[in-house]
Simulated assay, not measured.
Amino acid sequence: MSEKFKYLGTIISNDGKTNREISARTAQAKINFQKMKTILTNKYISIETRKRALQRYREPVLMYGCEAWTISKQIQNKL
């Protein structure tokens, strides 16, 4: 069984796998999307503005710390 801990907002496990970190980041990005759903589905806001809002508020949550992730083909397809 692998032990894990959180350091500076990143889940670190002793086996070096990043599956839990990626799952946690994906879940946080989904929550962030749900919070912004009224803005992102508002037809009175231009599509360009909605795209920029999505890029500014959801993608950084998902991709934080990705430079250190070990990515397998399965995880790459999931992302």
Rank of each mutant, 00 (worst) to 15 (best):
I22G: 05
D15L: 13
T70H: 08
I71Q: 02
T38R: 04
L8W: 03
R56T: 14
M63Q: 01
K35Q: 09
T38H: 05
W69M: 07
S23F: 01
R20H: 12
N19T: 15
K4T: 15
I11A: 11
Y57F: 12
S13D: 13
Y44P: 00
M63A: 02
P60Y: 00
A68N: 11
Y7D: 10
L62Y: 03
Q74H: 12
K6A: 13
S2A: 15
I45Q: 04
R56H: 06
K78I: 13
R58G: 01
G9R: 06
S72G: 12
M1H: 12
T38I: 10
E67R: 06
C66F: 01
N14E: 11
L79Y: 02
I12S: 09
K43S: 15
R58A: 05
Q34T: 10
Y57T: 09
K43G: 14
R52T: 14
T10W: 03
D15H: 14
F33A: 07
S2C: 15
I11K: 05
K78H: 12
L40H: 06
M36S: 10
Y57K: 07
T41D: 12
K35E: 05
S72M: 06
C66A: 12
Q55K: 04
I45P: 06
E21K: 01
L79V: 04
A27G: 09
E3C: 14
A53S: 08
I45K: 06
I31V: 14
T49R: 08
E59D: 07
T70L: 12
R25S: 04
I22M: 09
L62G: 00
V61T: 08
E48K: 13
S2T: 15
K78P: 08
K51E: 09
T18I: 06
T41P: 04
R52H: 11
E67V: 09
T49E: 07
I75F: 07
I11L: 11
Q55M: 04
I22D: 01
K43E: 14
R58N: 03
E3Q: 09
E59C: 05
E59G: 01
N77C: 12
R56I: 11
A27N: 08
T26A: 09
L79I: 05
N32D: 00
L62I: 01
R56K: 09
K73W: 05
A29M: 03
Y7E: 06
Q76D: 05
I12F: 13
M63L: 08
G16W: 04
T70C: 13
A68G: 14
L40C: 11
A29G: 05
G16Q: 07
E67N: 12
T38D: 10
P60W: 00
K6V: 15
L79K: 01
S23C: 09
R58V: 01
Q74L: 15
T49H: 10
K6S: 13
N19P: 03
R52M: 12
Y57H: 11
L8F: 11
A24D: 10
E48L: 12
F5R: 10
T26G: 00
